[in-house]
Measured scan of single mutants.
Amino acid sequence: MEVVDPQQLGMFTEGELMSVGMDTFIHRIDSTEVIYQPRRKRAKLIGKYLMGDLLGEGSYGKVKEVLDSETLCRRAVKILKKKKLRRIPNGEANVKKEIQLLRRLRHKNVIQLVDVLYNEEKQKMYMVMEYCVCGMQEMLDSVPEKRFPVCQAHGYFCQLIDGLEYLHSQGIVHKDIKPGNLLLTTGGTLKISDLGVAEALHPFAADDTCRTSQGSPAFQPPEIANGLDTFSGFKVDIWSAGVTLYNITTGLYPFEGDNIYKLFENIGKGSYAIPGDCGPPLSDLLKGMLEYEPAKRFSIRQIRQHSWFRKKHPPAEAPVPIPPSPDTKDRWRSMTVVPYLEDLHGADEDEDLFDIEDDIIYTQDFTVPGQVPEEEASHNGQRRGLPKAVCMNGTEAAQLSTKSRAEGRAPNPARKACSASSKIRRLSACKQQ
């Protein structure tokens, strides 16, 4: 084909351009004929944790799935940006308080904090938690009735009371019990989460009196709706648990309003109706937990002794299953770290194939690490110290990083047969305790 000078094309009309061969290198194709290559998922490591896909996002930050490269346990990490926390009232204080509380709590029905990582340079905090497959609110939203069968609701409620009793025994008032803060594992274990607005009572406090509340409006008791200066913290949790039980068994809320002012007005009056299909035992329990006067409201001991709580409820309806993943529609909620794991395991070791967030990740503290002497050669063979940054567990980050890069360049065919977990650990520049 004859090559045409581009400067001469402006002298031709459209018809003349076609005659000189423009149609031979300008093609129009339908979008259905285009085959897009999927974007390669680059592996990203935060300390010893391999990052997966997004699980959810809230006002405080994002939650992603991660894999512990040492234990191969599935975890969830809450990623918090200090810049964003400053824009939220009491944001930083709530996060630090939640970390302090979770560090000393150990119960099967309370979410466990596994690790805390802090990135000084990017001003990011990573709260590594045990993995929960789904939230209770997500399960309720997945069915038209917006409720659980009585047998399933009873099982979840009993676990909620177990976890709540443990928190109260530790002198902690949750203040925000609701389905949105109750998570579930694949085995059906309920976990109380989000202790950001919780309050730890003084060890020598005479009672459970509280003065502040930041919980969700629909789950607040009349004493808070009416603006009382002080109130019983434990009875606030009992009320919120009662509203939660009402919601998961009926699909409704005892109090509603077009806006928060109308909602608080209705809560302050204390008038509500219980659907007739709840039955006398459940209705009596709800009335005891939603008692207007805090002094007359049920205690956890009274809830445990109630006939509806103690009764064994046979399954009359099919239980609400864990819904498919909202993004991938995966009904099994498979591990989202698998594509990243395959990338590390299947590809040659190259620095361009993975990302390490930083050479140094500070753990379990908000301060910069200490310094240790770096050896410097002298005339008599002895070495003197220069400062060298280290990880919180004493690992020399720069030395590990250099060693990792040197190993990656060394030709050794046997290394390709290593397991995925050992490869992740070798790529991680800074081991965590």
Rank of each mutant, 00 (worst) to 15 (best):
P222W: 03
R147Y: 12
A295L: 04
E98I: 02
T212I: 07
E130M: 01
M392V: 13
P89R: 04
Y126R: 01
Q364M: 04
L105G: 03
P373A: 07
E92W: 06
R331N: 10
V3A: 12
D348Q: 13
L195G: 05
L54I: 03
N266H: 09
C210M: 05
Y156T: 07
E70V: 09
E57G: 07
S299L: 03
L286G: 00
M11S: 10
V3S: 10
S428D: 08
C391R: 14
E120N: 15
N181A: 01
F264G: 06
L182P: 00
T71W: 07
C278M: 11
D350W: 14
I99V: 04
Y126P: 00
P217A: 09
E138V: 02
T395K: 02
K82T: 14
L160I: 08
D352Y: 05
R405K: 10
V243G: 02
Q112M: 05
K403V: 03
V133A: 11
I361D: 13
S232N: 09
A205H: 10
P315V: 08
L105C: 13
Y131Q: 00
S401G: 06
P275I: 08
H154V: 01
P6D: 15
E357L: 13
R147D: 00
N119L: 08
E199Y: 06
Y118W: 02
M136P: 00
K62N: 14
R86T: 15
G381R: 12
T186C: 08
R383P: 10
Q214E: 11
E145L: 08
K41F: 07
Q137H: 05
A347G: 07
C278L: 06
E130S: 11
K191N: 01
R333V: 07
F148C: 02
P281Y: 11
I248V: 04
K108N: 09
V114P: 04
V337S: 03
N90P: 06
D365M: 14
I361F: 05
D277A: 04
N247S: 10
F264R: 04
H154I: 02
P275Y: 05
I224T: 01
C73R: 08
G242L: 00
F366A: 04
R87G: 07
A406W: 12
N266E: 01
V128N: 09
R405T: 09
I35W: 15
L72R: 02
K269Y: 10
A410C: 10
V236C: 12
L182Y: 00
C210V: 06
P217F: 12
V3P: 15
P411V: 15
T24C: 08
A414V: 12
G180A: 10
L427T: 14
M11V: 13
G215A: 07
E396A: 09
L17A: 15
G370F: 12
G61L: 03
F234A: 10
R297I: 01
L117P: 02
Q364P: 11
V66C: 12
R425S: 13
P144V: 04
Y246T: 05
M289S: 00
G187V: 04
Y156E: 07
F264P: 11
S216R: 00
C391I: 06
E65Y: 06
V133G: 07
V143C: 09
R384W: 10
I99W: 03
L113V: 02
E98V: 01
N380L: 05
K388A: 08
F309N: 00
E351V: 10
K78S: 00
I79C: 01
G227P: 07
C158M: 00
D162H: 03
Q305T: 12
R415F: 05
G135S: 15
L252V: 10
T336P: 08
E33F: 04
R405V: 15
G242T: 00
P323W: 06
S232M: 02
A420L: 15
N181I: 00
Q112F: 07
Y362F: 06
D208R: 14
E407A: 13
S419G: 14
K262N: 10
Y362V: 10
Q123D: 05
G394V: 09
Y131R: 01
N90T: 03
L400H: 11
G56I: 01
A76Q: 02
L9M: 06
H306T: 13
L386F: 03
D327T: 14
F298S: 05
A316L: 05
P38W: 04
E14Q: 10
S19F: 05
Y362H: 12
K311T: 10
G242S: 00
Y156L: 10
Q170A: 05
E92R: 15
S271A: 07
P413E: 14
E317G: 14
I29H: 01
L67G: 03
S169P: 02
I172F: 05
E349S: 11
R426F: 10
I267M: 04
D284M: 08
P324G: 10
F234G: 10
Q305S: 05
G15C: 07
P149S: 06
Q382D: 12
K416L: 05
N119D: 03
Y261L: 03
W332R: 13
A377V: 10
T395Y: 12
L140G: 00
R103A: 11
V150Q: 01
A397K: 05
K44F: 10
Q399W: 11
Q399S: 05
A417N: 13
A398V: 06
K235T: 02
T402A: 11
S19V: 03
M129D: 11
Y60C: 02
F255Q: 05
K82Q: 15
L290E: 00
P315G: 09
S283E: 04
L85P: 11
T367I: 11
P254R: 01
G346M: 14
G381L: 09
I322R: 07
K235L: 09
Q100F: 05
E14I: 11
T24Y: 12
S240M: 05
E33G: 05
K41L: 09
A318T: 08
T186A: 08
V368Y: 13
H168E: 10
E349C: 07
Y272T: 12
A318P: 14
D350C: 13
Y292F: 06
A347T: 10
R211I: 04
A43W: 06
R74T: 00
P339Q: 13
M18T: 15
A397I: 13
E376L: 11
I248Q: 09
A295D: 08
S19K: 13
G47V: 02
P294L: 01
R75M: 00
K388F: 09
A200H: 12
D229R: 06
S232I: 11
K64Y: 11
R28I: 11
A347L: 12
F354L: 07
M129G: 05
E291S: 11
N94C: 07
Y272I: 07
D343N: 06
P314A: 07
C132L: 04
V128I: 15
